[in-house]
């Protein structure tokens, strides 16, 4: 460390040198915090590597593609092809998006553009409260309320529309893909709505006024000025919802049926990547291959959510142009609204 001298450091504007000793806390703080920040990066890298290492036994036995795309998850015979899990994950996530995203966007539009000012705070709080309910409570409610109550309606639906291929006319299982998707839809509404709200609020008043001044109705103004401008951001919000839906574990495993086959109908039992890990980990404790398979499933899940969330953030940032803290706010809204399971 340099001896006391005239210093040009920004926190020494009076130009008087200070003894190196008194600068120690500053340096310590700076280096301490930098190390902390670097540790985060290393942590993620480390976990990725460990995940991969632990799942290697099953990758070497079945190959990466074999594991991921084989349609045979047979624990009793030690065969691990994760396609049923992948398909189940996709079906439930798709259902969640189809149901949840329009509802979330409708709520976001209503709260920002249409509802009277006094209603805005309570409605916003209530929509955000959806995220405060823990996953396991949604699962509990799903098992004992949703499944029994919806079964007659599901049976009617599948009987009436039996000619549509995926809907089918089979007997409706209690826990099934649809209920899984529905619960996921409920869980992604708060986050998709919160971020959409942020994005919609950034639409400059200029454009909305231009539309109104041309003689547009409220809805026409939304269609002309708000939605096109918010397209990118809302897409990002939907993708964050997708990421959440894919990674959600507990609520899904309680209501999806946990059947390791590819169901042919919307109302069949199914399985997801996250659910299989939660469900089978107990019995896998003493079976290294099974354990490796579950960890491999976790790795696939990890990679999937990483990719989707990276893409999502790209869209959200693009959709929040003009606001410097846009991405931060949206991320905080997302973080607070809950991403996980």
């Amino acid at each position: 460390m340099a001896a006391a001298s005239v210093s040009t450091r920004s926190d020494d504007r009076l130009g008087f040198g200070r003894s190196s000793l008194s600068r120690l806390p500053d340096k310590a703080l700076r280096w301490g915090l930098t190390v902390l920040a670097a540790a985060i990066l290393l942590l993620i890298l480390f976990f990725f590597i460990r995940l991969y290492i632990e799942s290697r036994p099953v990758f070497s036995k079945f190959g990466v593609f074999g594991f991921t795309f084989d349609n045979n998850w047979d624990v009793s015979h030690s065969i691990y092809g994760a396609l049923p899990l992948l398909v189940g994950t996709l079906i439930t996530a798709a259902t969640a998006l189809i149901i949840g995203v329009p509802v979330a966007i409708a709520a976001a539009l209503f709260v920002t553009e249409l509802c009277p000012g006094r209603l805005r705070p309570p409605l916003t709080i209530m929509i955000d409260l959806l995220a405060a309910v823990p996953s396991v409570v949604y699962g509990l409610w799903g098992v004992f309320v949703l499944i029994p109550r919806l079964k007659p309606a599901e049976q009617w639906f599948t009987d009436t529309f039996h000619f549509i291929p995926f809907i089918g006319g089979a007997a409706v299982a209690g826990p099934n893909y649809f209920i899984g998707g529905l619960i996921l839809a409920i869980m992604i509404v708060p986050i998709v709505s919160a971020i959409s709200r942020e994005v919609i609020a950034t639409v400059p008043a200029d454009h909305k006024e231009a539309a109104l001044a041309l003689g547009a109705t409220r809805w026409e103004m939304i269609r002309m000025a708000v939605l096109p401008y918010s397209r990118a951001g809302i897409t990002g919000a939907a993708m964050l919802g997708l990421g959440r839906a894919i990674g959600e574990t507990i609520a899904v495993t309680l209501v999806v049926g946990n059947a390791p086959t590819i169901g042919k109908h919307l109302f069949d039992q199914g399985y997801t990547l996250a659910a299989v890990i939660a469900n089978e980990f107990g019995e896998a404790a003493n079976n290294p291959t099974h354990r490796a398979a579950l960890i491999a499933a976790g790795l696939v899940l990890f990679v999937l959510t990483l990719v989707i969330n990276a893409a999502a953030r790209y869209f959200v940032v693009r959709g929040s142009r003009g606001r410097r803290i846009g991405a931060s706010d949206a991320a905080t809204a997302g973080a607070a609204a809950g991403l996980g399971g």
């Binding site: 200029d206 006024e209 231009a210 003689g215 547009a216 000025a225």
Partner: peptide, 19 residues
Amino acid sequence: VAVRRAVGMVFQKPNPFPT
């Protein structure tokens, strides 16, 4: 809405629809 169609307005800052 009919009024606004009949009474047009040009704003201070040009605001063509960006998309």
